[in-house]
Structure formats: structure tokens, C-alpha cells
Design a binder for these strands. Structure first.
Lengths: 201, 201
DNA sequence: ACCTGAACACCGTTCAAGT
DNA sequence: ACCTGAACACCGTTCAAGT
């Protein structure tokens, strides 16, 4: 066959096809991407170096940035963290794949820039800044994994104490439960940060 | 050859060999486990159903429980969460593998039991209990991933704002940095919980 | 420059055969 | 009951050949 007049592939097309596969079935193979794009697997290697690079391309695809909205530091930070978490939550099954290869993608670092600026403006001293960012980041990533987890994780049948059984039954299920827990965590952390800020100043 | 007088394999031996491989190189194949145990790959299937079951066996291996120490609810909860996070942190490269297959292992649920009991005794109402547990769990898992991440994630060269650059340079590196951030997060969350408790009561 | 087809090493898993 | 050896389908990747 040979080279077509206009390329049939691009990094973006490959990443988008792979992301569709992950959303649909939780994983992808190079062969499946090729099939989705009506191409042979070997063709993909003209655009990406390998499977790892496909995953990185997906990561870049997910983090289409959004400028930090203006407002009170509290609200700005909250909006930023929600955006960050939702970028993951829109593709729950992708998260384990992304965490498997931890790479400092430019888009992610860009988000850290925004968070750092807001926190600094809010009065968090430089010496503590990265620790605070790490705490927020850890919580967001963990919450994203919580969205990815099937509700099976909270299995009342396996609980041994009546307290946990009652708690599981009271909590509801699915995305609503995960969202509510995330909001609570944000309240707790941002509230604590406000106090930290007051103490340091 | 045929059946040996005394079995050469067991689920525990397989899991231990796999964990060694993960610690050493971040992944394992069935063939590598077999080689480490001086056995053919097909032999493994007399003891485990497949690779996924090996991962579950590792999970069970990691969570050798420790009874919750008595004391003030604050200290008890802190000790519990530290233990939980350290169980992961001892095997950083394992974490992405575990998060890929979220399963409600009995050992993990057992830990939730302990946390639920402490929180309930501390006065957190049942309706909020699972949300609080989820928040703590998300933070712990996220923090464990932070330990697994190479320091490259915090790459001053990729930061765009001077604030973030300064913060990264001030933060130090490696395990010390991750541990300090984890402690800060615990302080913030447990402090916020204490206030939540005061409000609800 | 970019797609194809054939080929590679490797991997997870199955299963009949042996004791 | 448990280890072996041969065999399977599949997967990621390479590369010479084509235009």
C-alpha cells in the first residue's frame, strides 16, 4: 500500500482512540487502537514510540487547562481542586493506568503552578508550600481512585463491627457517595488551611 | 518428574517471591516467580488461578494486622493511619499494582472496622462515618502513591511561576519530604475532625 | 513521510502425562 | 495432589518493502 496522500494517523487520534477503549473496557492494546483507526498495529509506531507514550498522550489529552477563576482564595482553590479531580473522575478506569507511570507531565505541573500561586497569595509561607500542595494532591488523587473503585470496596458483608455495617448502609452508593465524601474532605482541608494561615501570620 | 514428596510451592511462597520482584524491579511475570522458586511456570497454576490472584495474595501478605493501640482517640487514629500508610510505603512500587485491581480484601476491611470504631467512639455520627473514612482513606492512598513517585514529579525546571520554583527548592527531597507532607496532612485532617466533632455534639 | 506484512521474543494460561 | 513439557493465543515491537 504505502504512504497515503494525507496521513491517516496522529498522536491525538491515537490517544483519543485509546481513551475510548479505556473508558469502555478499562484497558487497551496496540492492536485494538489500530483496529479502531482502521490501520495495522505497526503503523502506530510512526507516531508514538510505544505503549507508554500512548498513555502519556492520554494524560496530556485529559488536562486541557482551564484558567483559575478569580475570587476569594478559598473559592479559587476549591474550584481548582474540583477541576483537577473531575478531570480524573470523568475517566475513572484511566486513573490506575496513569498512576502506574508517574511522570511530571507539563500540564500537571502547570496546575501545581496555579495552586502554588493561590496558596502563596493566601499567606502560606514558602517553606510549607510544597507540603501543603502535596497534601492536597494526595487527597485529590486518592479521591479520584475512590471514584474508580466499584462500590464493592465498601462491602457490609465483610465488615466485622456493627458500627461499620451501619455506616456503610447509611452512606448510599456510587458516584453520589464519592462526590459527597470529596466535598467533605475539601471542607475539612480548606478549613484547616484557613486556620493554619491564621496561625502563621 | 511428577509430584514431589513435600510440595515445593504454596500461595505464601508465590506471593513472597512476587513481592520481592516488585520491590526490586517494579513488576513481575509468572515466569520470573517460577525461576525464583526453581520451578516451571505451569506449576504455579496448581496454587493460584492466575496473575490477578497472585496480586491479591500479595495484598493479604502486606496487611498483617496490628491491634489498634489504646489511648486518646486522636492518637489511636493517627497510629492507625500511619500503620496503614506505612504498610504501603514499605513497598512503594507495589501501590500502582494494587490500585489497578480494587478489591475489598478482608484485611483492608478489617482496618476500616478499626477506624470506624475509633471515629464512632470519638463522637462522629453514623451518617457521616463512611464519608470521613473515605476522606482519610483517600488521603492515605494518595500519600502512599506520593512515596512511590520519584522526586521527578516535583521538577523545578518545569515550573512556570517563581513561587512554585522556590517552594520546590525549599521542600527538600525523597522520603523525608514525603513523610513530612504526610504528617502535615494528618495534622490538618485530625485537627479538622476534632472541630467537626465539637460542632456535631 | 507513513502504511503494510511478515517476523521476533515474550507472556499468561491450559492440559495431558507422569508420579 | 502437584510438578513437568509441550502447546495455544495474544501482545508489543521491529524492520524491510512499498509509495
Amino acid at each position: 500500500m504505502g504512504r497515503p496522500a494525507t496521513p491517516k494517523l496522529s498522536v491525538e487520534k491515537i490517544a483519543a482512540a485509546a481513551l475510548d477503549l479505556v473508558d469502555a473496557q478499562g484497558e487497551f492494546t496496540m492492536g485494538e487502537i489500530a483496529a479502531a483507526l482502521s490501520v495495522r498495529p505497526s503503523s502506530l509506531y510512526n507516531h508514538v514510540a510505544g505503549k507508554v507514550e500512548v498513555i502519556e498522550a492520554i494524560r496530556a489529552l485529559i488536562f486541557k487547562e482551564e484558567p483559575p477563576p478569580p475570587g476569594e482564595w478559598n473559592d479559587t482553590l476549591r474550584a481548582l481542586l474540583c477541576h483537577y479531580r473531575n478531570a480524573f473522575a470523568r475517566h475513572p478506569r484511566l486513573i490506575p493506568m496513569l498512576t502506574a507511570h508517574t511522570v511530571s507531565s507539563p500540564d500537571v505541573v502547570h496546575m501545581y503552578d496555579d495552586i502554588a500561586t493561590v496558596l502563596s497569595d493566601a499567606g502560606i509561607p514558602t517553606g510549607r508550600l510544597l507540603d501543603v500542595i502535596t497534601v492536597l494532591d494526595s487527597f485529590v488523587i486518592g479521591s479520584a481512585l475512590d471514584v474508580a473503585a466499584p462500590d464493592q470496596v465498601w462491602d457490609a458483608a465483610q465488615a466485622r463491627t456493627p458500627v461499620l455495617v451501619a455506616a456503610i448502609e447509611a452512606a448510599g452508593q456510587g458516584r453520589v457517595r464519592a462526590d459527597r465524601a470529596f466535598e467533605l474532605g475539601l471542607d475539612l482541608l480548606l478549613g484547616a488551611l484557613a486556620r493554619l494561615r491564621a496561625v502563621e501570620e
